[in-house]
């Protein structure tokens, strides 16, 4: 029976390792990164992943060995050890040091993500308005300020300039939603009654799926959108075309 037990623990060990080793090749892993913040986040993910891997292998190996040795048929008794202060201190200090290391290592990235001091000073690029179960976006028009008549409004697709920091203002009209773009590694809940800032820099042009990550009712699963990153010149052209559109629409309304 101890063979069985050993097999089970080793099976778990190998199964887990093999499954994790196979997953990236099949696309069951972090999606391709597309923002500058993704680099340190993925590095943290990998670094902590390494700690997890080592911790897991260590514990499983110890467990397997202890069970294998301990379950042999023997008639003599075990030693009645009640503990060992040195050992306790060693593993407490060892694990503590690793945890402090992880805590310190992630501080700069958290600051880049959320420290108000890191907020781009260039003003809001777009306002995101979430409601059950769709996304709307407002860009400041020619006057550069939001909330004026020449704002450019779009639905489901958020167009943004790539290669520079953008600042979004997240608002919800009804319940809590969450602005999640897996390839950008950003996620921020959109809380009704608040305007929450979110900033990031897209490293390349492209189209990225926008996912609502917070349960927002029965249509939560279909609350999909898109982020389209354009080079600055294309973005300016896109915005200019929309501003003209908005003006002519305004002129028509006036008539």
């Amino acid at each position: 029976m101890r063979h069985c037990a050993l097999l089970l623990v080793l099976g778990l060990l190998c199964g887990v390792l093999a499954f994790f080793a196979l997953s990236p090749g099949r696309g069951w892993w972090l999606p391709d990164a597309a923002s500058t913040i993704a680099q340190p986040i993925d590095a943290l993910f990998d670094g902590i992943g390494l700690v997890i891997l080592l911790g897991f292998v260590l514990v499983m190996a110890l467990l397997a060995w202890a069970v294998w040795r301990g379950a042999r048929a023997r008639t003599d008794r075990a030693r009645s050890t009640h503990g060992h202060t040195g050992l306790e201190l060693t593993w407490t200090a060892g694990v503590g040091a690793i945890l402090v290391g992880i805590a310190l290592a992630q501080l700069p990235t958290w600051a880049r993500l959320r420290d108000p001091a890191e907020m781009p000073a260039s003003g809001v690029t777009a306002r995101v308005i979430a409601h059950q179960w769709a996304w709307r976006f407002e860009h400041p028009g020619a006057d550069g300020v939001l909330g004026t008549a020449d704002d450019v409004e779009t639905a489901s697709e958020l167009v943004l300039p790539a290669g520079e920091s953008v600042l979004l203002e997240l608002r919800s009209r009804d319940v809590i939603h969450s602005f999640f773009v897996p390839e950008l590694r950003v996620k921020q809940d959109v809380v009704p009654g608040r305007a929450i800032p979110l900033w990031f820099t897209m490293a390349r042009a492209g189209e990225f799926e926008l996912v609502c990550a917070e349960l927002c009712g029965l249509g939560h699963y279909v609350m999909a959108g898109r982020v389209r990153a354009l080079p600055r010149a294309d973005y300016d052209a896109w915005l200019a075309a929309r501003i003209i559109d908005a003006r002519s629409r305004g002129a028509e309304d006036a008539r």
Partner: peptide, 16 residues
């Protein structure tokens, strides 16, 4: 796996 979640920048991605 709690270690991934406890690291705030990683949790931003993994939360929910």
């Amino acid at each position: 796996s709690g270690l991934w979640l406890a690291a705030t920048p990683v949790d931003v991605y993994l939360h929910d």
